[in-house]
């Protein structure tokens, strides 16, 4: 398959609550349904667990936590978007998988200065689509997890 539009980029899209997000398709190794995982006590809260991806151990990261969103209210288990970077893979847990979109660069804008919180760090840009906005996630930052949760766990207990 040749690239049909040379100017545009392809994004693997997914939903997280009201947000419509996308990551560069080049960084996505695969999209798989919910996998059983092993939780990691004392790990940062955003780390939901470890999954066995055909013999490879991949860390599953709760994207909701990364974006400071409340826990999902859905009954369906989250999906895995496995991101592959040079220094390893990680899986982002999302609510629902969308299509792979081919978008022209002219629809791109950098995120507004007014955007606050975790989103400011993770979102690298916005595409203006006909039926809404597609937020572009910086995959490198999305799989970066900060702080350990050792203290919080103890405090909660």
């Amino acid at each position: 398959m040749e690239h049909q539009t040379t100017s545009g980029m392809q994004f693997c899209t997914f939903r997280l609550g009201d947000l419509f997000l996308g990551v560069d398709v080049q960084c996505v190794q695969e999209v798989i349904r919910y996998q059983e995982m092993t939780s990691v006590p004392l790990a940062p809260v955003a780390i939901r667990g470890l999954i066995n991806l055909r013999g490879q151990i991949v860390t599953a990261i709760d994207l909701r936590k990364q974006l400071d969103l409340p826990p999902s209210q859905l009954d369906t288990p989250p999906m895995n978007v496995v991101i592959r970077m040079e220094d390893g893979a990680a899986s982002l847990l999302v609510d629902e998988i969308g299509d792979v979109l081919d978008i022209g660069e002219d629809a791109f804008e950098t995120p507004p200065e007014t955007i606050r919180g975790a989103a400011r760090r993770l979102i690298s840009g916005v595409f203006k689509l006909d039926d809404g906005l597609l937020l572009v996630l910086d995959p490198r930052k999305a799989i970066q997890v900060q702080g350990t949760a050792a203290e919080t766990v103890e405090a909660a207990s």
Binding site: A43, P44, L50, N52, G88, A90
Partner: peptide, 23 residues
């Protein structure tokens, strides 16, 4: 993975006979 390197109580992970991950 590097996200978990900070947690000093684990030396790594392994996959058990049933396919699940154990620390």
């Amino acid at each position: 993975d590097k996200q978990l390197k900070e947690v000093s109580v684990y030396a790594g992970a392994t996959i058990m006979g049933d396919g699940r991950v154990a620390l």
